[in-house]
């Protein structure tokens, strides 16, 4: 859902609406027109109000209280935030989330770029390859997590057995604190590679061929053309992939929940898993709400920094 939403909001703002019909003048007509507008907006506005705007406001209130969802709320001011900032656990879950993002993003971006460049060549059966690489994108995170848990099963998973053929003693993957996050990253990258590839491929195909011809006339070789034409012209797509990956990466949950449950020993506990556990396992809804706000602030800050920073390197041609 978030995918196109963001992009559209980033680029669509400029979309000017074509000539507006004159607004109806008489009061009666005006009232009827207002009713029409309301009739078209209410079906979306009601769920929006009830399930986004009101919960947002109450999240702010809950984060200032001590509450286990059952007994009466006790107002505690900013204690939850103070508490969170003083707990090493908080830094750990943000650290694990960052670990996930820093592992995942280079793999899907570089892998997706390599695939997009390959499929952009004169390649037999291009549509077929694109369909295959995209296949995991449409499946659920849980299905992906479950099958990778099996593939990466330390004792009789196919990956370790195959490593054994080459005399390699495979790691404990999701059962080993040092390997739990790499396991999640591996499964996630496998799922999203095709998504990134399709976006970058669309970006490559939108590049004007004249630019390459002009570069050739100037004597640029394939590498120089890649650096001076392809990468700059692809920068809007690259920007989009990075923004989306960071927004989604900070909210990573499903695959962690199903693959490791945050373990072993909290080694893959991410922020959203912590919010979930605080609320539904430890009955600390106030602290969970405060953590939600911190997560939201981080996502917002990172996104805003990127939108400001894009002027330096993104070329909208």
């Amino acid at each position: 859902m978030s995918v196109s939403t963001l992009q559209t909001s980033l680029v669509d703002r400029a979309a000017v609406e074509p000539s507006r019909p004159a607004r109806p003048r008489s009061t009666r007509k005006g009232i009827r027109y207002a009713i029409t507008v309301l009739a078209f907006l209410l079906p979306s506005a009601v769920p929006l109000l009830l399930f986004v705007l009101i919960p947002m406001v109450s999240a702010a209130w809950i984060s200032l209280t001590d509450w286990n969802l059952i007994s009466p709320q006790v107002f505690v001011g900013f204690d939850n935030f103070v508490q969170l900032l003083s707990e090493p656990r908080t830094a750990a879950v943000f650290g694990n989330t960052l670990y996930y993002i820093l592992g995942y993003l280079p793999i899907v971006y570089l892998g997706g770029l390599a695939l997009a460049l390959a499929l952009n060549q004169a390649l037999k059966g291009r549509a077929l390859w694109r369909s295959i690489y995209f296949l995991p994108v449409v499946t659920s995170w849980i299905a992906v997590a479950v099958v990778w848990r099996w593939l990466l099963n330390p004792s009789n998973g196919v990956v370790n057995i195959a490593l054994g053929w080459f005399g390699i003693d495979g790691p404990g993957w999701w059962t080993d604190p040092a390997w739990s996050m790499p396991s999640v990253i591996l499964a996630s990258a496998w799922k999203d590679l095709g998504f990134v590839m399709v976006i970058l491929l669309a970006g490559l195909q939108a590049i004007n061929a004249d630019l390459y011809d002009a570069a050739k006339v100037d004597g640029a070789g394939p590498w120089a053309r890649f650096i001076n034409v392809t990468l700059p012209m692809l920068s809007p797509s690259t920007f989009f992939v990075i923004v989306i990956s960071l927004i989604n990466g900070f909210q990573v949950f499903d695959q962690v929940y199903a693959m490791t449950g945050g373990g072993p020993a909290g080694s893959s506990q991410v922020v959203v898993q912590q919010i979930y556990d605080l609320t539904f396992r430890y009955g600390q809804a106030g602290e969970a709400s405060a953590l939600s706000w911190m997560l939201f602030a981080v996502i917002l800050a990172v996104t805003v920094v990127q939108i400001i920073g894009q002027k330096r390197w993104v070329h909208y041609g």
């Binding site: 978030s2 009101i54 109450s58």
Partner: peptide, 25 residues
């Protein structure tokens, strides 16, 4: 109004689970 629509709908569910749970409850 359109900007409000977009902004609010971009708030991830993950951030809203506690109040949303309370609301639905």
């Amino acid at each position: 109004v359109f900007a409000v629509y977009l902004a609010t709908m971009m708030i991830p569910l993950q951030v809203l689970i506690v109040p949303l749970f309370v609301q639905v409850k």
